[in-house]
Design a protein around this nucleic acid. Structure first.
Lengths: 320, 320
DNA sequence: GTGAAAGCGCTAACAC
DNA sequence: GTGTTAGCGCTTTCAC
């Protein structure tokens, strides 16, 4: 078996409680004693057993994050942010991919709740009631969703969408179509709202490449001059399908995305999209979670988004 | 506090050990008793305290995975596979991104070791000795790396590289350059070996988009007709830089990648690359880990890779 | 400032 | 087939 607190106590010639205090409440032991204990700890390579500690404190020192689709680069970016901030506090993080399934999502959170101090829930697809229920189960921070009484960090989709519309209108477009994501996605409704009724709604489509391909098929018949996709993955699908059809972008149609994943800059034409600070959102979510765990009230944070103009948008029916 | 095993025992009119057995060793209790216990468990919504269980059994029911770069879509795919298989066994999984830093990688594994039953280590950058040391610390499964005595699952880079070379040669190329990844990456050496000396080595470069851009700058001066990139992300960077330079692919240069991430199919020209069964590798890694945890010997599994020919390769200096 | 002792919730001998 | 009991390794009163 590994080295325990007793081994340390014996070798440092103190009691186990002193060892415990030296590690978790340094102020309560004489500096000299503390130093002696710490030396022994280092010498023995002692690591407190987290299960034992957890059994007594009721805290696990772990966090969980649930995302709808790990293959969408947006979410790994959030994961990174979460891990970065959590790691600074010595906290480990569990991840789960719900594969866009609301039932799985709720179940995953419930399972996690038993073994973490809190969970970050991204782009949730469950009902407000379920979110509230989950939040009652464990400290919960939502990313890109608002439910009253539950902490959340938002990347401002509505404002971003406003910029998209303004950009397209300044280019001379006045008939665009919104290629919608999952109807259950809060972000989808938020973006739709940001449109302010100035776009026709098509879909919903799956929020991935395939969904974009499907959307493009429908969109070309819609007679609009610009397509606003729910997210970049869809926009990439749209671009791909249009290219396959021999339809030029942005000459024939302008296309925009949302998220600013790396590939938005790499595709051809490079995608005009709304940049989302995904990694930062992950970090902020951990902060909110920490506050919640410490007993604070639910908080809400909004992160700014910015339009990134690239080459997939231009004035209608002309080359700029 | 939450409901404990005692609450269940009391209400089911049995001892705590019977409850424990009903849940973890169903064969040891009478069916009727078991059913009664299960009913109470369901009624009370009892969930065994994992810390307490772990304290006694020495098992956590958790797994960890460490990857070098979450923003490379290849790794989230592996994560997915790991979670899928682990989830089937009720196992949760911790993740960590080492950001291509060998020291961080080792430290992350050490930290995880204390709170998991085993860890999956992807594309490790540490020395063989460190891997062995880590493997002594906790059940360990390597993905895309071989270290004697340590379990591993390999996606056959060498064979894949062989196919790339054969493909390029069949097209008429006979002077190609390999745009190398991290020198410390086992896969890099493996791929280099798969080349069989038929390519000049350039690099190493960072195994990401930026590294590809840097590599492209150097490659155009090398006078070869085809560029073989260490991975897709680099290849995408190469494509991007060549496009910026107004150099046509594949007319002027053929370019190949490795991994077959989603974006390899989406970029323009679509990338000829080697498909890697990343998700499957994650699943298999969990299987090997389970075997290891059960006390089995280190095992080795090899997964086949396949060349995917798209539009970034063609006969030298001509349009096919 | 430090030690002794009582558990946290559970499993695993060990009895019966 | 079931109950009793002794801890797993740690934190935390409570004494001193």
């Amino acid at each position: 078996m590994a080295v325990t607190i007793r081994d340390v106590a014996r070798q440092a010639q103190v009691s186990v409680s002193t060892v415990s205090r030296a590690l978790s409440a340094p102020g309560l032991v004489k500096e000299a004693t503390r130093q002696r204990v710490l030396d022994v700890v280092a010498g023995l390579g002692y690591q407190p057993n987290r299960a034992a500690r957890s059994l007594i404190t009721g805290r696990t020192g772990n966090l969980g994050i649930v995302v709808p689709d790990l293959t969408n680069p947006f979410f790994p970016a959030v994961l990174r942010g979460v891990q970065t901030r959590a790691g600074e506090a010595g906290t480990s993080v569990f991840f789960c991919d719900s594969r866009e399934d609301p039932a799985a999502e709720a179940e995953l959170v419930r399972t996690m709740a038993a073994q973490v101090d809190g969970v970050v829930l991204c782009a949730s697809l469950v009902s407000d009631e379920t979110v509230a229920e989950l939040a009652a189960l464990t400290p919960l921070v939502l990313i890109n969703r608002i439910v009253p009484g539950v902490s959340s960090v938002l990347m401002d989709s509505a404002a971003g969408m406003g910029q998209v519309v303004a950009h397209l209108e300044s280019l001379g477009h006045n008939d665009f179509v919104y290629l919608g994501g999952p109807a259950a996605a809060w972000s989808n409704n938020r973006r739709l709202r940001g449109l302010g009724g100035r776009a026709r709604l098509l879909g919903s489509f799956e929020p991935n490449f395939g969904g974009g391909v499907a959307a493009a098929e429908r969109a070309v018949e819609a007679g609009a001059t610009a397509f606003i996709a729910y997210n970049d993955l869809m926009a990439l699908g749209v671009l791909s399908h249009l290219a396959a059809l021999g339809i030029e972008v942005p000459r024939r149609f302008s296309v925009t995305g949302f998220d600013d994943i790396l590939y938005a800059a790499m595709c051809s034409p490079a995608l005009t999209t709304v940049h989302m600070p995904a990694e930062e959102a992950g970090e902020v979510a951990v902060d909110l979670l920490a506050a919640l765990i410490a007993g604070g009230p639910a908080e809400h944070r909004e992160l700014p988004t910015t339009l990134v103009v690239r080459s997939s948008t231009a004035a209608p029916h002309s080359r700029t």
